[in-house]
Design a protein around this nucleic acid. Structure first.
Lengths: 327, 327
DNA sequence: GCTGTGTAGTGTAACGTTTCACTTCCGGGA
DNA sequence: TCCCGGAAGTGAAACGTTACACTACACAGC
């Protein structure tokens, strides 16, 4: 591959001048500038990123650390991040921790060795791993806030509120909660948004916490069996909702005729399952794009302010929640 | 961050010796070796990949170029690839081309600038883009073969055969094909496997090609409306099958009571849709892991032999194909 | 005592780029 | 005529690592 040296030799100037041209510095005359650009083009010159990285300490690559690509929320996010980043000339380095903090730490270590310029991170745990302490590169959180970090996410409180109001409007008085993990902040926000909205006459009969991957614990199964008067099961995300529907089906209960179920995320395929899922849609693509934008600002020196960027969400009404007759 | 120089200074040897220890070269005595390792550990030394890359020309990073993370086959694949790669100390750089060859080419350019050691690629087009001509790094194809490249994929011919035999066994005599894109080799393999198996008494009544993303063309909709005696619709993948089921539902047809549908891939959620999809399962995780293994061999000098690694697939019998009464 | 061989360790150039400090040249003002 | 300032361009060091060519030394065999 062609190097600055080759260009310099071809044009008959010094490598310093070539570098100056390539980096748009002003101290080069018109003609030489033009010549250099021309030759670079025609030699198919591409800067050697490793050499640049070595000299400048910047790699023009970012890390994307995700908990589980198997949850359809994340591929969509990753796609948006990658596309936005590539448009800005940034390479995306992927880590999928499969929900394990040790894998996450390994991933960070790898990313740090490669000296990525910044990290987009959706954390699995409630606190940053020690290895991040020694990182002087910007980190921007996606979807799940952690104290002291910038974060880009949906307005989950709004989502919870929307759901609560909708439940009331549809005549539901007692609901059961199949919430996401206790230690994941975004799960808590959804839950608190719902519980906190509490329109008159809406009561949370019970609550069980389960994983976001939709695997139901024995406790959750038991809760679905008993139900204690709940006419609507409000689930922490769509995966949980789909699992709940299946579980209810095994109990001989039909959704929404016998019991209603709501989801959260509006992942693709939620309108393909039966019944089609009523859920909260979030602008995943916009979140990914915004996250890249934020980290780019941070990479170019913007101060870290622990800022939270929120996106509006919307109720998507489909078939899994039934309107109850007014008593 | 600590460098070899720091270690050398701390131990009181030359940087060359430190490097020799770190790279497991033999010409260092026991004691010094131990000292160096100890100090490296305690200084939290991590090799600077950029500097290594510069010196050796190897980055210990690989590219993963995918057509569409939105298709559930690929996240699962990406997860397997990333995990296997990370276990081998390799960083995965992601490109999602959204099915566009220009985006694919951009991605390659980016990966080449960053000098990845190899590329895992699931191509969207029928031929490699020109930019790949100038690449001297190994490329291994995943899922979709291209002439002259190594490829790791499922035995799609076997899948097609399995499906054909099953169809016959279930009493279906005339089938319609909703095949994947004509120009994608893996789609062709599935199709040919099915059509080529042709047990006695099994007839392909019609065939329409559609995209792997499950968006049905007007022609496809029309074919589903007419059906021309087909009792089973054999779909190129699960996304197509799910779309077909929806489309049939809009026509007032129930699956499998009125018409049967089969899928391909066994993506997650296929047992959540209604009816649960009968399909062909492929070992996605194993494919991803194997692909990493193959590219690692290639990276360490194994010759390029245009080798094809095939994985067995299996029929997953669920509810979307009905047994027909023997006439 | 000499040569040969093997082990342990070192000095330093090189990879491709950026950047600081420097030189050279030219024109204008005093 | 001399000096100054700015514009245009250059030399070379530096980033962290590796690897080649080398030295120093000990010891065995004759």
């Amino acid at each position: 591959m062609a190097t600055v040296k080759d260009i310099a030799a071809a044009v008959g100037v010094s490598v310093a001048t070539v570098s100056n041209v390539l980096n748009g510095r002003p101290n080069v005359g018109r003609e030489i500038r033009a010549r250099v650009l021309e030759v670079a083009e025609q030699l198919g010159y591409r800067p050697n990123r490793a050499a640049q990285a070595m000299r400048t300490g910047r790699t023009r690559a970012i890390g994307l650390v995700l908990p589980d690509l198997t949850n359809p929320f994340f591929p969509e996010l990753a796609q948006a991040v990658e596309n936005t980043a590539r448009a800005a000339g940034l390479l995306v380095c992927l880590v999928d921790s499969q929900g394990r903090v040790e894998a996450e730490a390994d991933g960070f270590s790898l990313l740090m060795q490669h000296a990525v310029d910044g990290i987009l991170w959706c954390p699995v745990g409630p606190r940053p791993p020690p290895i991040l302490r020694g990182l002087q590169k910007p980190v921007v959180l996606i979807d799940r806030p952690l104290p002291g970090y910038d974060v880009v996410q949906s307005d989950y409180a709004m989502g919870g509120r929307l759901l609560a109001e909708y439940a009331r409007r549809m005549g539901h008085g007692r609901v059961g909660l199949l919430s996401g993990p206790r230690r994941i902040e975004s799960a808590r926000q959804r839950r608190d948004g719902f519980a906190g909205a509490s329109p008159r006459g809406l009561k949370v009969a019970w609550e069980v916490h389960v994983g976001f991957d939709g695997a139901l614990s024995a406790e959750a199964e038991a809760a679905l069996r008993r139900r204690r008067g709940a006419t609507l099961i409000v689930c922490g995300n769509d995966l949980i909702a789909i699992s709940a529907i299946r579980s209810l089906a095994r109990l001989g209960l039909r959704v929404p005729e016998d019991v209603s179920v709501s989801g959260f995320d509006n992942i693709r395929w939620t309108d393909l399952v039966a019944p089609r899922l009523t859920t909260i849609a979030q602008p995943v693509g916009a979140i990914g794009a915004k996250a890249v934008e934020v980290i780019r600002e941070r990479m170019s020196g913007a101060p870290h302010v622990g800022r939270r960027t929120l996106f509006d969400v919307a109720l998507v009404e489909r078939d899994s929640v039934r309107r109850l007759a007014r008593r």
